[in-house]
Design a protein around this nucleic acid. Structure first.
Lengths: 239, 239
DNA sequence: CCAAAAGTGTTTACGGTACACCCATGC
DNA sequence: GCATGGGTGTACCGTAAACACTTTTGG
């Protein structure tokens, strides 16, 4: 529809075919050394210069919202096939200081082993933060992040999406630590292992850890087929 | 921001301060005679004349998305304080034939006893449909409705939101029938009653049904305080 | 040997499920 | 009496929770 719009951050008039008044913002979660982290970007210019925020962008005229979010992730991380889900639209009238802009929030789960900062983004522009170390964010991004975390906690108890934060091969203890970190609870190792193994969601790949200073743990993979079957009939993870 | 826009349904140029390219559509659920129903409106003019769709509207420049949805509901049903939650944004590029418009989907639960069609809406313009009798809908509204139903089924197992579809005072059988209808399952009466009573969510108001041709059932109310407490620590309803 | 984490076994209690059965009311 | 739904009792089973215990590996 419209081809010219004011870049509401820089004040420049830009000419392109994106939708005005609608943006996308994405909370990207990662898991490293037992801590849940989010990827934030530092704004280089405009009124929010020097401040951290969630990665975001515009939606093109001929692109679905989901496609725009995937494109954004690819541009930022170089990764395709990231686990990505829409949260909801955020649209308080005053959420954005330079005009009325509604944003569609997403959250993504990334395997840190796959991730590398993409060309064009230096370490000073994009950085992982532990949840507890997240600084003050621009606009309503703190609110969006809070919503993302609450949503992750909810989702992780309804579907085994936590796998998307772990390496391909992982141990049961890693899995348990992931749940402990996200849900902020203490769990019993023996009970956790039995509970998860009973679900038949893990495939024993007959490999073990190497170079650990204790008994090596079995490595598992996630069984996508069982996951699909369970998803169709609905299921629950209460920890 | 912009004050003039083309009414994409009628083709008229209208002058008002609403956001262009963003609308709201709302699935309004009701429960009557053991059946789950939705309120649809018939479009009177424009390219979708004579077809049924979800009630929807524009978002004003100085109004939050949630406020717009509440206003829409009030205009349509005359009701305030309706249970209302956002679903997500729907934005396929071709979802709307006359231009790129993203819509924010909502779903609402109303007590049918409170509801009356508002002045300005005649019976031929707004009508309740049983879920199975819903006709073909305009644009992507069938998809939004499907998403709403799936979401309702999910939510009803995570929080006792079903209460919002029942009268103030209800029997345990009514409650069970509501769950059976929404989840499309058969339940055991004795077990359902014990399970629900154990949750301490129901208040026995020491009243009984009248004029029924069988033993009169106790009437209950929903205990909002216990609900709040349970919500804070998270809870699950598996039926 | 010890430390550290992997992994097994056992006991208890509670909630889900199935189903038999009695109660109250109108016709 | 009979139909209809209201409501109680009970027996069985699976799983969650707590925790004692054994196994494997590096140092």
């Amino acid at each position: 529809m419209k081809k010219e719009l004011l870049d509401i951050e820089t004040g420049e008039l830009i000419s392109t075919s994106v939708m005005s008044s609608i943006t996308i913002d994405c909370t990207i979660f990662g898991f490293e050394n037992g801590s849940l982290e989010v990827l934030l970007v530092k704004h280089a210019k405009g009124i929010s210069k020097g401040k951290w925020g969630l990665p975001g962008g515009w939606i093109q005229e001929v692109e679905s919202i989901d496609a725009a979010a995937h494109r954004l992730l690819r541009e930022l991380t170089g990764l395709d096939n990231i686990y990505l889900e829409q949260l909801k639209a955020f649209g308080e009238p005053d959420r954005f200081p330079l005009g009325r802009v509604i944003t569609v929030g997403y959250y993504a789960l990334v395997k840190r082993e796959d991730y590398s900062v993409k060309a064009g983004f230096t370490a000073s522009e994009a950085k992982w933060f532990k949840i507890k170390d997240v600084p003050e964010l621009i606009y309503d991004h703190t609110q969006i992040l809070d919503y993302s975390i609450r949503n992750l906690r909810k989702r992780v108890r309804q579907a085994p999406i936590g796998f998307n934060l772990l390496p391909e091969k992982f141990t049961l203890l890693q899995l348990m630590q992931l749940y402990q970190e996200i849900l902020n609870v203490e769990m019993d190792k023996p009970n956790f292992r039995r509970k998860f193994l009973r679900m038949k969601l893990l495939v024993d790949i007959n490999e073990k850890q190497k170079d650990v200073s204790h008994r090596a743990a079995k490595l598992y993979k996630f069984d996508h087929k069982t996951y699909q079957k369970l998803t169709e009939k609905g299921f629950n993870f209460e920890f």
